[in-house]
Nucleic acid binder design. Structure first.
Length: 469
DNA sequence: AAGAATGATTAATA
DNA sequence: TATTAATCATTCTT
């Protein structure tokens, strides 16, 4: 406000804010060298000036009275016009030295971020028209699932606080502005105040308030950032899947051990199944991505330490074997009703993978039964292929829970193993294997079971000894 | 409380 | 782009 002081200096203390003028040569009441108007008038002016100067020392009522007196003074119009003139001459400098509001880049950043985070969203347009327009432009970012509900709740809380604060500031700003406007209007009766000046005043006020708003925005941004990081951390937090979900996944994994890479659709289905069985009310639905994670982890961990998973594998193999038994039995019945020369047709209407898998399960089941577990269980691969040949025996699996038919299974197993030679079994089941699954099989199994090299030699022995028990 | 299990994340890879 | 391998961070088990 240097200019203001300057103006006051130049005005010679005629302004109402007299006290600031003390230092100037403003108040020489007695003598003036302008003889044209006479001493009386000079005295008069001096009095007036003096009154003005001391106006702040007076009580309010007194001041009001004096003010009124001044307003009604006959000299007032003349003084006023002088002031106007002076002001006009100094006005340029005032105007020139001021203004140009650069759109604060930081504020823009904050605004953008708040918008992006949905804090400055549709609810209640913000302060400036720009913000409001942008706010309406930014649609509704309602995309995420229930997982994010907590985050969203907190965010909306922040947003609510932000908006109420913003509104409060705005209201205060408006109040203050109108107050100042009134003051200026009031003063405009005694001193010339251009609309430009009022505008300037208002903009100054607005700037002040917007700097306060910026602080608000800044702290809101901070809050959002914190919330965000917490959320990300929370996302990192894990919740164990339900037992049922794990079971479903394991079932699939072990029944597709030859190629445990579920297709996208399969993943979706698994995710759906797992989510359904969760049934824990809120939260914890299992997504496709989670299924992918699970399989990724499972594959790598299984591969890393097959022995450790043997028990589990057997368990699930048994489980699926029981399930498969029915299907197999049905299939067998089908094939039997068909001409025995074309047993394939009956099977293949199922799906090749299924056959392979169930066979493989039986295999693991069997070996586990006979080898006890872990260490000696080394031949999943070589055995796998052949075991599926057993399907035609179908009915023997009906009682898969060990029992009399175990012997027959052992026999077939031994038979199969002894025939390490080939994929073509005398049972003719060979044709049932789609080359596709075979290839896939080899890929994963080769990669993961170095022990398989040992198995053929070791396998028969262990089985043998076990069967003898 | 220590260690295992486990879901998620990340960089590298093909 | 999907997968692997390593790793992180939490949860479960002992």
């Amino acid at each position: 406000m240097d200019e203001q002081a300057r103006i006051m200096q130049t005005l010679g203390g005629v302004t109402l804010a007299g006290h600031t003028v003390q230092g100037g040569m403003a108040v020489p009441p007695p003598h003036g060298h302008d003889g044209s108007d006479g001493d009386g008038r000079k005295q008069d002016i001096g009095d007036i000036l003096h009154q003005i100067m001391t106006i702040t020392d007076q009580s309010l009522d007194e001041a009001q009275a004096k003010k009124h007196g001044l307003n009604c003074h006959r000299m007032k119009p003349a003084l006023f016009s002088v002031l106007c003139e002076i002001k006009e001459k100094t006005g340029l400098s005032i105007r020139g030295a001021q203004e140009e509001d650069p759109p604060d880049p930081q504020l823009m950043r904050l605004d953008n971020m708040l918008l992006a985070e949905g804090v400055a969203g549709p609810e209640k347009g913000g302060g400036s028209a720009a913000v409001a327009a942008a706010a309406t432009a930014s649609g509704s970012p309602t995309d995420n699932s229930i997982e994010h509900s907590d985050y969203r709740a907190k965010l909306s809380q922040i947003r609510q606080i932000y908006h109420t604060e913003l509104e409060k500031y705005e209201q205060a700003c408006n109040e203050f502005t109108t107050h100042v406007m009134n003051l200026l209007r009031e003063q405009s009766r005694t001193r010339p105040i251009s609309p430009k000046e009022i505008e300037r005043m208002v903009s100054i006020i607005h700037r002040k308030f917007s700097s306060i708003q910026m602080q608000l925005k800044q702290s809101t941004c901070e809050a959002v950032m914190i919330l965000r990081s917490r959320f990300l951390d929370a996302r990192r937090k894990r919740r164990n899947f339900s037992k049922q979900a794990t079971e479903i996944l394991n079932e699939y994994f072990y029944s597709h051990l030859s190629n445990p890479y579920p297709s996208e659709e399969a993943k979706e289905e698994l995710a759906k199944k797992c989510s359904i069985t969760v049934s824990q009310g809120v939260g914890s639905t299992i997504t496709v991505a989670q299924v992918s994670n699970w399989f990724g982890n499972k594959r790598i961990r299984y591969k890393k330490n097959i022995g450790k998973f043997q028990e589990e594998a057997n368990l699930y193999a048994a489980k699926t074997a029981v399930n498969a038994a029915h299907a197999v039995a049905a299939a067998v019945q089908n094939s039997q009703t068909n001409s025995p020369t074309t047993p394939n047709s009956g099977f293949q209407m199922k799906d090749e993978e299924f056959q392979l898998d169930s066979a493989e399960n039986k295999n693991t089941l069997l070996t586990s039964m006979f080898t006890g577990s872990s260490s000696t269980f080394n031949l999943p691969n070589s055995g796998n292929m052949f075991m599926s040949m057993q399907n035609p025996n179908g009915d023997s699996y009906q009682g898969a829970q060990v029992g009399a038919n175990v012997q027959s299974q052992v026999d077939t197993l031994r038979h199969v193993i002894s025939q390490t030679a080939g994929y073509s079994d005398d049972l003719g089941g060979n044709s049932m294997y789609s080359p596709h699954s075979l290839d896939a099989n080899g890929g994963w199994q080769d990669a993961m079971t170095p022990s398989s090299a040992i198995s053929p030699t070791e396998g028969p022995g262990s089985v043998h000894s076990d069967t003898s028990n």
